[in-house]
């Protein structure tokens, strides 16, 4: 394994990075530790940058988990009251059961819609309401308004990113917790 070979430069720390270098037309393979690799390669990011990136990635991954690339909390039995579709079934098939599922699963679907489309705001055509339709009830009740969060997840996420960049990990962790709280489902539709 790479980790057991000592760094070819400092000969102390274990080599964890494999670097391929072109030296006068021949390929040279270097096995270095993080620190030496950072100095050796223009492509390798500085060490401090690497750790920052990985911390940020970790935070964002957690955020995404919370945002639910969309899982309701453990034990929460989420089904659509109109069609009876369990949310898990949507997760595996990507098919919703009825138009009311959009209200029933709104909190989790938003993340998916954003993931698929990069937006969650309709800007296309609106329904035609011809004379024939006026007597009949409207197509779908508007989705119930969710109570406005103190801060939007996007806002918290942005601040969290800034905090990490400023190496203020304490604040970043606090913001992460806030984000978790914001994203945790508090209602059940079953």
């Amino acid at each position: 394994m790479v980790g057991k070979i000592p760094c070819m430069s400092c000969k102390e720390k274990p080599a964890t990075v494999k670097l391929i270098k072109m030296v006068k037309g021949t390929v040279e393979e270097l096995r270095l530790c993080q620190e030496c690799a950072a100095q050796n390669s223009p492509y390798q990011k500085k060490v401090s940058q690497i750790s920052l990136d990985s911390i940020l990635a970790g935070l964002l991954a957690e955020h995404q988990k919370a945002e639910g690339a969309g899982h309701p909390a453990e034990g929460e039995d989420l089904t659509c009251p109109t069609c009876g579709l369990p949310f898990d079934s949507y997760r595996s098939s990507l098919l919703l059961g009825c138009s009311d599922c959009y209200t029933s699963f709104e909190k989790y679907l938003q993340a998916d819609l954003r993931k698929f489309h990069g937006s969650i705001v309709h800007r296309g055509r609106t329904p035609e309401s011809g004379p024939e339709l006026e007597a009949t009830p409207p197509a779908l009740p508007p989705p119930p308004s969710t109570p406005a969060p103190r801060r939007s997840p996007a806002e918290v996420r942005r601040r969290m990113k800034e905090a990490v960049e400023a190496e203020n990990y304490e604040l970043a962790a606090k913001l992460r917790d806030e984000l978790r709280e914001l994203e945790t489902p508090t209602t059940s539709n079953s």
Binding site: T103, V121, G124, L133, A139, L140
Partner: peptide, 9 residues
């Protein structure tokens, strides 16, 4: 009538 939400289209 088509299923429509002012928010999601």
């Amino acid at each position: 009538h088509f299923a429509y939400s002012p928010r999601y289209g």
